[in-house]
Nucleic acid binder design. Structure first.
Lengths: 107, 107
DNA sequence: CGAATACGCAACCAAACGGTTGCATATTTG
DNA sequence: CAAATATGCAACCGTTTGGTTGCGTATTCG
């Protein structure tokens, strides 16, 4: 799961996911066209996305197709984000309580 | 939004959020007890969480209370994660289609 | 076959990161 | 007031990160 968070930390990698979201199964060279960076640079980013299992590579001849894998995103959403989102109301009341305590208690 | 993703990238920072999730409004020293690291190190991590607006600091005398702010998490969930989760089925069919193309097309 | 295409691997580099140490400042307490 | 407490700020340092350049390999095309 750490690998997923780390993979999502870079805007270029998120852009790559977005690009694949736009058209799934693109080759490396196709992805290179949308991001101004050397091919090798993009290869590195894709490497992290693949290691995080957010992208699945598929060789066809000399071409490497890249497919999205939404499973990890679903996991961090369910196991992490939702947990914290659920505490939304609680967190807000805590904060306002803290603010009130300040006002009524101006030592 | 980039700041939020970056803030979430580190396991220590996620642990801090978890800790605040357990008990909201903790002081810096309180948070230090649950993480083996110097106070200054934790201050840095909290700094990033605060800059990402995931945590809101509140001074009470010489103590600095830390409160969760669930809003940014909700945003990236709605504006990013859900978008990609929605394409889940689509992505899977794309992948299997890619696999099939390989099988039926073994040049 | 030879040339072009699609990609991988390794070295290298500047910048950012994660963490520490040392010291300064503000608030509370006795 | 003096001492203790709670925190901030800055310098420093090893490691990781993001990106490049250079070269090697496999597949396709003419």
């Amino acid at each position: 799961m750490d690998a997923v968070f780390k993979a999502l930390a870079d805007p270029n990698r998120r852009a790559l996911l977005d690009q694949l979201h736009l058209q799934n199964g693109q080759t490396l060279n196709q992805l290179c066209r949308h991001l101004r960076m050397t091919r090798q640079g993009i290869t590195k980013h894709l490497g992290l996305l693949i290691k995080a299992d957010l992208v699945v590579p598929l060789w066809r001849g000399r071409e490497k197709l890249h497919y999205l894998n939404p499973a990890p995103l679903k996991q961090i959403s369910e196991r992490w984000i939702d947990k914290h989102k659920a505490a939304c109301l609680r967190a807000l009341t805590d904060l306002t309580k803290g603010l009130d305590a300040l006002k009524t208690e101006p030592n």
